[in-house]
Design a protein around this nucleic acid. Structure first.
Lengths: 132, 132
DNA sequence: ATAAACCTTCCAGCTACTAGAAGGTCAAGC
DNA sequence: GCTTGACCTTCTAGTAGCTGGAAGGTTTAT
């Protein structure tokens, strides 16, 4: 099948599929005589696998590892689990960061009257904490 | 003062300070005859303001707006508050995304025995949801 | 025959820096 | 005066993960 059909079936844009090929993640089963990429169902399956993994926030590097593990009949499930748990740690760290930011911003926003007057605790805070 | 002192006092790397100048955020008070940047205390103040704003996750675009509002004696505090609240919305959306990912990953990790055997619900899930 | 809709490759751009190269300048020590 | 090292300058390129567009070939339908 053509790349556009593979795109439709996998849910990834054609551009992204070509990009994944560029970086060595998935290549089409073969090329037709006219140079067109020709995808097999298992390629589409792989692309959807990638789409889902990326959707869960795995980096392309992690995806590469997951693809390798997926293809490896002798894999240890512990290896896969480790990647997943590392990802969870990353997520936890990011959430903590964001929550801390959110808290500060909400405190500032709540004390800002938000009208036509210029005095603003948000600006003041950015400026004064900056002065420390 | 030299850029390295401005860097030390503002907490931003010299490279970043030059970058901020490049994109028009803060430029030094003047240039010395030898071409060196010469920073005034108010420049450092501005740089710290930026450092803090970036630390709270404001994009460079938002920082540009905040810098303008900071410099504008006739600003409306409502404009600042809007930027801050937009940022809070962004953060909320990101946190929700991350929490959803985290939940799925934890469910998968919990059902994965994580040993030397190859069968792995994480891989299976990525593959089968991918097949849908 | 021609137009629309594919496909190809390659190059540029996005965010917000960061690293490094090539070269000028300055202050200290001898 | 000379050297050494630590500054400083500009410019280019790389990071992640695509995305958009240009230039050109192919296929399909009319």
């Amino acid at each position: 099948m053509n790349i556009s059909e593979a795109a439709e079936r996998s849910g990834l844009p054609s551009k992204t599929i070509r990009y994944y090929e560029d970086i060595g993640l998935v290549e089409p089963a073969r090329r037709l005589d006219n140079g067109y990429r020709d995808y097999a169902p298992r390629d589409v399956h792989m692309l959807r696998f990638l789409s889902r993994a990326r959707g869960l926030g795995f980096s392309v590097l992690e995806c590469r590892a997951l693809v390798a593990l997926y293809a490896d009949a002798d894999r240890k499930s512990a290896d896969v689990k480790e990647i997943a748990l590392n990802r969870v740690s990353d997520i936890d760290a990011k959430i903590a960061d964001l929550q801390a930011m959110r808290e500060i911003l909400m405190e500032l926003a709540e004390t800002c009257h938000g009208d036509d007057r210029p005095d603003c605790p948000i600006i003041d805070d950015l400026a004064s904490r900056a002065a420390n």
